[in-house]
């Protein structure tokens, strides 16, 4: 009986999910300086955002962000956008993550620290890496979990299609 209940709930969820387009939730996270930033304030009504959930212990996440960082100068010639890298590291690694960002030259990214995974849960991310493209009005228009080298091309293709 319980199993049937689970399946039923899932079906309902999927149906409703397709009828509504998700919006960026509002959660307060620390930035690199230690100040609190509300995630809903990331939406500025002008440019779309790539939001990438990562962790220092997640190798594919690092590969994805490095690939975005390397491609960024070329991509910015084609469209304007911002990159928000959300570190999901626990307090154990958040200090390391801060040093990591500098050592990897991710200076063009906005880095936020989600130390108790509140934003991660609100966005329903189970595992990193997961990346989202959010349009200028805060609507989630694309998402992808996992990373395979080359998959980053889909991000810029999506951003260009928003124009």
């Amino acid at each position: 009986m319980q199993k049937i209940k689970t399946i039923f709930l899932m079906v309902v969820a999927v149906v409703v999910a397709f009828s509504a387009q998700a919006q960026l939730p509002s959660v307060k996270l620390e930035n690199r300086k230690g100040e609190l930033v509300n995630t809903s304030s990331l939406v500025d009504g002008k440019t779309p955002i790539i939001i990438s959930f990562w962790a220092v212990t997640c190798k594919p996440c690092i590969r994805e962000l490095d690939a975005i960082n390397d491609a960024m100068p070329d991509w910015l010639d084609e469209a304007s956008f911002r990159v928000v890298a959300v570190s999901t590291d626990d307090s154990r690694f958040s200090a390391q993550a801060r040093a990591w960002v500098e050592g990897h030259g991710w200076n063009d990214f906005t880095v936020l620290f989600d130390k108790n995974q509140e934003f991660m849960r609100a966005m329903n991310v189970s595992y990193t890496p997961q990346v989202f493209v959010v349009d200028k009005d805060g609507k989630i228009v694309y998402s992808h979990t996992g990373y395979t080298p080359g998959a980053e091309q889909e991000l810029i293709d999506k951003i260009k299609s928003l124009k």
Partner: peptide, 15 residues
């Protein structure tokens, strides 16, 4: 205690 510095391509963290 955590002490760190980041800037100029260098990130240092001591815990």
């Amino acid at each position: 205690i955590e002490v760190g510095y980041s800037g100029h391509g260098l990130g240092v963290n001591v815990t």
